[in-house]
């Protein structure tokens, strides 16, 4: 089958439908996943296709239905739970971090929790401080949880399909700013294997590491840098757990410079983990410190002007790259 143009949202929906057709144990549960079709439309029409026994609208009881998904996953089902916004994860952190993540381990390997928790985060819709965060570090910190953050349409499909075959819990984080984006989907051809970071654009002067929507900003930044004569390599992490640091290290040992880009806040963020690993594993190869370009350490403001300013964009990444590689300080550089 050849590639077709579709949207990130449609690719996710197609992945759910294709997986559910193959595996009768998959059920979808969450707020508004059925009759409403999903807050962002990912499960639209699926209630009609699969019926209320497999597409379960839940009350607004996040700990209750995520906990139920854990029990169901231990009892022969493979639940896909939609947590409408990742910001709500604070409500379900016990079920996720203390229960789902640890059940296999605490019980000595007797049983796993094959569930996928789909959620979405990020800015771009003026959804304000409680509906715009990027909280992946909270989940990536916990052993036992796999964390996937697709940046492309093809990955949206294939990473979700793969997550729905895994024996362990997966936190699958989409980006609200990507749902309507168009791109090519080839259902017969994944971008790469699960757990492998991919070079989305090869380059020699600096490595830009990103995931989710920041991959796109980084690719635009790489174009801007190319116009300045700088060859930037852009790596898409795709999954935070498993974490393929080998691909990053290989790249940075060659380019000798790295920028880590995340939409999430800088302090205590996953960008810090990546930076630490690069410093540890590439120390003698680095020309400059590994630089983090991350979200400001502020709550996400509602005004579009403020919201835009609170997270990195291509311009900022490119300016940082220019400074790092060519020592050309941007206009905002402090005296």
């Amino acid at each position: 089958m050849s590639a077709v143009e579709t949207t990130y949202r449609e690719a996710l929906r197609q992945a759910l439908i294709d997986a559910m057709e193959q595996d009768p144990d998959i059920v979808v549960m969450g707020e508004e996943v059925g009759l409403y079709g999903g807050a962002y439309g990912v499960t639209k029409g699926m209630l009609e296709m699969f019926g209320p026994e497999r597409i379960l609208d839940t009350p607004i009881s996040e700990p209750g239905f995520v906990g139920a998904a854990v029990g169901a996953a231990m009892s022969g089902l493979r639940p896909v739970v939609e947590l409408m916004y990742v910001d709500f994860v604070g409500l379900v952190m016990d079920q996720l971090a203390n229960q789902a993540a640890k059940i296999r381990y605490m019980f000595g390997g007797q049983i796993g929790v094959p569930m996928v928790l789909r959620s979405q985060g990020g800015t771009g819709r003026s959804a304000a401080a409680q509906h715009s965060q990027s909280l992946e570090a909270w989940m990536a910190h916990i052993p036992g949880l796999r964390v996937a953050m697709p940046a492309t349409i093809n990955d949206a499909y294939h990473l979700l399909r793969h997550a729905l075959t895994l024996p362990d819990p997966v936190v699958f984080l989409e980006h609200k700013g990507l749902y309507t984006q168009k791109g090519m989907l080839d259902v017969s051809k994944p971008d790469g294997p699960w757990g492998k970071a991919l070079v989305r654009r090869p380059g020699n002067d600096v490595t830009i590491v990103a995931y989710s929507k920041m991959v796109q900003e980084s690719l635009i930044a790489a174009d801007m840098l190319a116009a300045e004569g700088i060859s930037a390599e852009v790596i898409d992490l795709r999954t935070l757990n498993p974490l393929d640091d080998a691909t990053l290290v290989q790249s940075v040992r060659r380019t000798h410079r790295a920028i880590v880009v995340t939409e999430a806040h800088q302090t205590g963020g996953f960008s810090a983990e990546l930076s630490a690993r690069l410093h540890e594993l590439c120390f003698d190869h680095l020309e400059e410190p590994v630089v983090r370009v991350a979200g400001e350490d502020i709550p996400i403001p509602v005004s579009p002007a403020l919201e835009r300013g609170s997270v990195p964009n291509a311009q900022l990444i490119a300016e940082t790259g220019l400074w790092l590689v060519k020592r050309q300080a941007p206009g905002w550089a402090a005296e």
């Binding site: 906990g67 169901a72 009892s75 022969g76 229960q99």
Partner: peptide
């Protein structure tokens, strides 16, 4: 975790029903 396993029984029951 006090109350931590209660929802698991509900989920197990959901699986049995299905």
């Amino acid at each position: 975790i006090v109350g931590g396993g209660i929802a698991h029984a509900v989920g197990a029951a959901l699986a049995y029903k299905r």
